[in-house]
Design a protein around this nucleic acid. Sequence first.
DNA 1: TTGACATGCAAGTAAATGCTTGCATATTAT
DNA 2: ATAATATGCAAGCATTTACTTGCATGTCAA
Lengths: 109, 109
Amino acid sequence: MDIDKVFKALADPTRRRLLDQLHSESGQTLTALCEHMDMSRQAVTQHLQQLEEANLVAIVWQGREKLHYLNPVPLHEIYTRWIEKFEHGRLDALHNLKQRLEGDDNDKT
Amino acid sequence: MDIDKVFKALADPTRRRLLDQLHSESGQTLTALCEHMDMSRQAVTQHLQQLEEANLVAIVWQGREKLHYLNPVPLHEIYTRWIEKFEHGRLDALHNLKQRLEGDDNDKT
DNA sequence: TTGACATGCAAGTAAATGCTTGCATATTAT
DNA sequence: ATAATATGCAAGCATTTACTTGCATGTCAA
């Protein structure tokens, strides 16, 4: 699992919107997805390719139609590898930062 | 909170490494952070600026030294706004996808 | 006060990114 | 068989991104 590809895929608002579309309705075709987007079909294709390479979207061919399915596993991976880790001691970190900031400006107890 | 800036800030491996550095030791100066990185000080500065604009890092000036602190709140925001949402029904989604894939190749019940 | 240290500012550049357009291919429907 | 539909491939282009280098500024210490 290339976590860098996942982060890069998520970095673009259009791609996040595509994920949202697939979340609201699973298995949409390329043209169906294009209808919500204000850009050429090729642009959407290229975004979907990046999502596919990041394993965030899985493709199923059905005749000439290309169906898109959301795969939430990489998102979960980001959670366990990145968010959970920093979440740990979240309140402590904020508390320490706050104290440091306050101590820098005044001597509030 | 500009979630796009957060995603974009996280999209770069160098910036994620900087966050890791700050996670392992809080309140490091710019030069301290530079020691771990294989690029010019200015490059690191620019990365840290993006992290700051995304609110992932908070700065505290102490004389001529610039101390960097990690702020985990935006990460938590990503979790609640993006991951949790897709997490919901994670197993279902996988199950459906699997069924669809199997149904496409054979007629397994 | 002078020199060393920590950082900022800004211009320049190579590579990556997002998008378009034109044409090609494969599948379905009439 | 032919036309319409769904998609792919590839070249081209403008913008953004990551990085460097050179110089300027502010702070601390001898």
